Amino acid sequence: MTAPPQLHRDDRPRCTSRLEAGTIATPEQLAPVRDTPLPTVGAHPPLFAVLGAHGGAAASTLARWWAPAADTGLAWPGSPRTTQMVIVAARLCMPGLTAAADRLREWHAGLAPDGVQVIGLVLTAARPGRVPMVVRRYRSVVAQLVEHVHQIAWHDELLSCELTDLAQYVPFDPPPLRRSRLTDTVPPDVHHAGTQIITHLAATRIDAAAQDDSEGTP
């Protein structure tokens, strides 16, 4: 049996869970930190981690759908031996958006572990149908905290599928030509979001390499 990941809450001084200016929080109000490396994806280390802003954020499902990803649960990936590129996942509802805002503000305030870089937010539908106006308005507010926001629709078939049965998105796979079963191919919105994430991640690495080269030039 695989040992559970080692999680801890450190003693860093923090802001409140809403991260209001000038206030301090206890470690219990922050996301925990995962000390152990994320699991490998096949023979390769994961390219990015999916962090659930709250329970039921669909982080496990998203990490299964995107083959290059790993599920880091509710914890920041704290080990430098694994990827610290993070996608924050949340449900598209008021509690989900509030939790996502807490994690994003925590990161912006420099309160996540050293090396963590948030590269996007994924909002998964909380139910089928139209999103209430109040939720749409708050989504716009939370979207200002992150450069890239991806949306995943409600998929009824997930209610009757095991995670291990879901098809996976692999970078450079062609988009699905038509809607099919989730066990055969990923949905178009999942494919589109995966392609955007990989593209943004590649651009981030190119920019970082260029910056390193310029800093090393005498």
Results as ranks from 00 to 15, higher is better:
Thr72Cys: 15
Ser214Asp: 15
Asp207Glu: 05
Ala153Met: 07
Ala53Gln: 03
Ala67Trp: 11
His54Cys: 11
Leu111His: 12
Trp65Gln: 13
Gly115Ile: 12
Thr195Gln: 10
Val86Arg: 13
Ala69Lys: 09
Val149Trp: 00
Gly216Trp: 03
Leu62Thr: 01
Ala193Ile: 10
Pro188Glu: 09
Gly129Cys: 12
Ala100Glu: 08
Tyr138Leu: 06
Pro176Leu: 07
Gly110Arg: 06
Met133Pro: 00
Thr83Trp: 10
Leu123Ala: 02
Leu201Thr: 14
Arg34Pro: 06
Pro176Lys: 10
Ala75Gln: 04
Ala57Ser: 07
Val86Ser: 15
Arg64Ser: 03
Leu163Trp: 00
Leu166His: 02
His108Arg: 13
Ala57Leu: 05
Pro27Ile: 02
Ala167Arg: 06
Ser60Tyr: 05
Glu106Asp: 05
Pro187Leu: 11
Leu7Asn: 03
Arg205Lys: 11
Ala58Ser: 10
Leu177Glu: 06
Arg179Ser: 14
Leu47Phe: 00
Trp107Ser: 09
Leu123Ser: 02
Thr83Pro: 08
Arg181Gly: 12
Trp66Arg: 10
Leu182Gln: 13
Pro175Tyr: 01
Ile197Val: 11
His155Gly: 05
Leu104Lys: 05
Leu111Val: 03
Gly73Asn: 13
Arg14Tyr: 04
Leu47Gln: 07
Ala21Trp: 00
Pro80Val: 09
Pro39Phe: 01
Gly194Ile: 07
Gly55Phe: 03
Glu147Val: 08
Ala202Gly: 04
Ala203His: 06
Ala125Cys: 07
Pro46Thr: 02
Val131Leu: 08
Pro45Phe: 01
Thr23Gln: 12
Arg137Lys: 13
Glu162Ala: 01
Asp11Lys: 08
